[in-house]
């Protein structure tokens, strides 16, 4: 059992995500073993760990793409339960970016971005499209609005995916290995957008293998292994002076 302390107390900001003793099984394999953490508003947390350590499962539980079986998760004071109203609220407050982009291939970039604002937020079409153009400019590809995802490069697709999530004006953004499926030369364009977002004060949870990004942007780093949080700390603490042996081993393999 492991816990990150109440970040809100230290930072003087309210808590955004509270994960309390979250358990998750796949058949008889326990993927999450009582994961507890609290993430404050405007905090950027990078989750590191070897593959199969449960980090993706964890952030997918926060968006209820996976249903946790023990413990509790709440986002912005709303607990994730079977209550449809809470699920809808949390989904519209939490944006998610996937490893495989998961853009809708049959819709144009513009339609990809405006779909949810129009049908979930019930925004008029013109407003949604104006907002979408702003977001596309922010991620640097306003000229691609009329194209289909299949006509874009991987980096561009991932930036569209980020814009698509931002269009719902979420209070939290979750990134599930956003650069793992990209060619090396495209990684930086996506990371730049994410850094920009972090500077803007977005609460972010990022699962990634990009150590440079973690060191530069993260407020805190969470290291997970076999379904447990092993160590938590600032980037400085984490990269220069880790306390746990398992963390040291991981860092020696990866750096």
């Amino acid at each position: 059992m492991s816990t990150i302390g109440a970040a809100g107390v230290e930072l003087g900001r309210p808590d955004m995500i509270v994960s309390d003793g979250v358990d998750k099984w796949y058949g008889d394999f326990q993927a999450l073993k009582g994961v507890s953490a609290t993430i404050a508003e405007r905090e950027v947390v990078v989750v590191l760990g070897p593959s199969g350590s449960g980090k993706s499962t964890w952030i997918r539980c926060i968006n209820r793409l996976e249903v946790h079986q023990g413990g509790s998760i709440s986002v912005d004071g709303i607990e994730l339960t079977n209550d449809t109203r809470n699920i809808d609220k949390i989904r519209s407050e939490v944006g998610m970016v996937f490893q495989q982009f998961n853009l809708f291939p049959h819709l144009t970039v513009m339609d990809n971005i405006t779909l949810a604002p129009r049908w979930v937020r019930k925004q008029p079409k013109a407003d949604a499209e104006n907002r979408a153009m702003e977001l596309l400019e922010r991620v640097g590809i306003p000229e691609q609005a009329a194209k289909f995802p299949g006509q874009l490069s991987g980096g561009q697709q991932q930036r569209v995916a980020i814009a698509r999530s931002l269009a719902m004006e979420p209070r939290v953004m979750l990134f599930d290995e956003p650069t793992s499926a990209l060619d090396p030369e495209m990684i930086s364009e996506v990371l730049d957008v994410m850094k920009d977002l972090a500077r803007g004060g977005m609460t972010m949870m990022v699962v990634t293998h990009e150590m440079g990004f973690a060191r530069e942007v993260a407020d805190r780093i969470v290291f997970m292994e076999s379904g447990e949080i092993v160590e938590v700390g600032t980037p400085e603490h984490f990269f220069t002076n880790p306390t746990e042996d398992r963390t040291k081993l991981f860092l020696s393999q990866i750096l």
Partner: peptide
């Protein structure tokens, strides 16, 4: 594992939702 008192304990304690909003029951 202990929950620390936080200044922002705004969590609505999860009473069972009414049956017409419970995902499983509705399904």
């Amino acid at each position: 594992m202990t929950m620390t008192e936080t200044p922002s304990s705004r969590i609505e304690v999860s009473a069972k939702p009414p049956f017409y909003r419970d995902v499983t029951i509705v399904k």
